[in-house]
């Protein structure tokens, strides 16, 4: 699975597809303090990105993929 839900952590692997966004949104609605681990993520569909941007979970680990990190860091860093 591209998205792995742990106790209070969601881990993204490889390419996270558009279909995953619905479940992600639901999960994050329930876990308002959840963190997200993006280290193994190489791409995520913008539907997921929107969910992350709107729910603002703390990013526990940034993507190892440097260009992806450069895209995500400014928008997912807590103010």
């Amino acid at each position: 699975m591209a998205v792995e839900y742990k106790k209070n952590l969601v881990v993204f692997h490889d390419v996270v597809g558009v279909e995953d966004a619905e479940a992600l949104l639901e999960w994050l609605q329930k876990k308002r303090t959840a963190k997200v681990d993006l280290s193994a993520c190489t791409h995520l569909h913008p539907a997921n990105l929107q969910v992350l941007m709107a729910s603002k979970p703390a990013v526990q680990a940034w993507p190892a993929d440097a260009p992806l990190r450069a895209w995500l860091e400014p928008i997912l860093t807590a103010p």
Binding site: V18, E22, L25, Q29, N48, Q50, V51, A54
Partner: peptide
């Protein structure tokens, strides 16, 4: 962003 409950993940 709207509250999560109102968010439509599939509207870009």
């Amino acid at each position: 962003w709207p509250p999560l409950a109102e968010l439509d993940a599939y509207s870009c």
